[in-house]
Amino acid sequence: MEKKKLTIHLKVWRQKDADSKGKFVNYTVNDVNPDMSFLEMLDVLNEELIKKDEEPIEFDNDCREGICGMCGSVINGTAHGPQSGMTTCDVRMRMFKDGETIVVEPFRARAFPVIKDLAVDRSALDRIMSKGGYTSVRTGGVPEALSVPVPKPNADEAMDMAACIGCGACVAACPNASAALFVGAKVSHLALLPQGRPEAARRVERMVAQMDEEGFGACSNHGECEAVCPKEISITAIGRMRREYLKAMFK
């Protein structure tokens, strides 16, 4: 059975580079197959733009299956779009109505300057990770894997936290542009495992300090981050980060 094709109107943020002012530009895409992904719809639009000698819309993406964390736009006011638990590349056109106007913007945050159109610079997240998003082990200097059993509930919860893809949607959604969920997820992942305990205090101190330095805001418990997180990282991550931080302070 042929599925009914959609007509989609778009208001897309176009910005030449970091220093230019951006603006919304309107486009219409016809014959959109509802099984298409949102990014495939943008591909189709870009093909049309190229044929018309216009500059295609720049947007970051790579895996297109919700795992690399490279994609990310604000779609109709929500980071990663209308459905919870999804990345921008997971969004399918069947989630929109025929004739609908979709507003597409980059992730906005002080710490995420726009590079071009929908692409932003999230390298601040890498710099936070460089301060402690790991256990300080050398290649080779490690014990046999079985020597430290990890209770299944810990392993499972650590995995829940480790599922963060570093997309930055939590930052984009937060009224304070805080990176607390992102940092909390990594702090929690490693705090839950015996391998991560030895440097738990140093880790949380250094990561939080770097987060502040990068210009991310403070967390004031709005909870928008959890709502948009494509990997459904629980806001308990932030609570755990705070507890770890306090522990570190009073050590």
């Binding site: 790991y134 256990t135 082990v137 290649t139 080779g140 490690v142 014990p143 046999e144 894997a145 079985l146 430290v148 059993p149 990890v150 209770p151 299944k152 392993a155 499972d156 650590a158 995995m159 480790a162 992942h189 490693l190 495992l193 391998q195 991560g196």
Partner: peptide, 17 residues
Amino acid sequence: DQAVAQGVPFAREYGGY
């Protein structure tokens, strides 16, 4: 061994193995 030391949360059984 390396991955476990890095904190890779491999799937575990109830006994922790």
